[in-house]
């Protein structure tokens, strides 16, 4: 079943249009990866979906039009975004970061605390540092915190904006393993943008190629890596 669909999605900054009529789909239970080089419009795509920049066209979640909604209401509809880079609250403790992630929930403290413990189990290093200020964590830990924080809102769709940015390859691998596990065990649907094609295509159900704000190719990871020109441009072999 289709979870997210964008049609004719256009967005940009001021007079500059970055995305041109983007057509995307994420089905329930999928990990969809958008590959693109620097400046292809990856972050803009994420922002256009989460509503943090003005957009045209339509964004539908489970068939309902969410184009007109404000960012905080889009979170309430079940779309959580892990922003690019260090999107945590650096002055707040790890625990308060997670609480802030659950701020839209109205199902009571005990359930929120239970979820917090659950993510502490998934990310043991966050549990060790729960009282520390988020700004004092390493890049990889902050990225995990950003993911855990997004999950605290119990989203049906997780948007990940280049989680590998600035991380060592081993840390990135670990991070992607977590995302894959969440997808398999919890049925979490994920839309992830990346430049790191090798690692990301590994776990993708489907892949889109983004070039200067347009989708230029799509298909399964196997299909795309079979295409010679794509393999050379994005996978480097």
């Amino acid at each position: 079943m289709t979870l997210l669909r964008t049609s004719g999605l256009r967005a940009g900054y001021g007079p500059v249009t970055v995305l041109h009529d983007l057509e995307l789909e994420v089905n329930e239970g999928e990990i969809v990866v958008i590959l693109g080089a620097n400046g292809a419009g990856k972050t803009t795509t994420m922002r256009a979906i989460s509503g943090t920049i003005p957009r045209q066209g339509t964004v539908e979640l489970k068939g309902a039009d969410i184009t007109k909604l404000s960012p905080d209401n889009i979170v309430r509809q079940g779309v959580a975004q892990v922003p690019q880079g260090r999107g945590t609250f650096p002055e707040l403790s790890v625990e308060d970061n997670l609480r802030a992630g659950a701020i839209t929930r109205r199902d009571g403290t005990s359930k929120i605390n239970a979820d917090m413990e659950r993510w502490y189990q998934q990310f043991p290093r966050l549990a060790e540092r729960r009282g520390q200020r988020a700004g004092s964590l390493s890049g990889g830990e902050q990225q995990m915190l950003a993911i855990a924080r997004a999950l605290m809102s119990r989203p049906s769709l997780l948007l990940c904006d280049e989680p590998s940015l600035g991380l060592a390859p081993l840390i990135t691998q670990e991070l992607f393993a977590v995302i894959e596990r969440l997808n398999k065990e919890e049925g979490l649907s994920v839309l992830l943008v990346e430049q790191n094609a090798n690692l990301a295509m590994h776990m993708a159900s489907r892949v889109y190629l983004l070039e200067t704000g347009r989708i230029v190719a799509q298909g399964s990871a196997a299909e795309l890596s079979a295409d010679d020109s794509i393999r050379k441009a994005y996978l480097g072999f």
Partner: peptide
């Protein structure tokens, strides 16, 4: 908590659903 979050990082505050 919302006030602290906005003070710390307004952009991320929006992304966790804070008005």
């Amino acid at each position: 908590l919302a006030m602290n979050a906005v003070a710390s990082n307004a952009e991320s505050a929006k992304l966790v659903g804070i008005r």
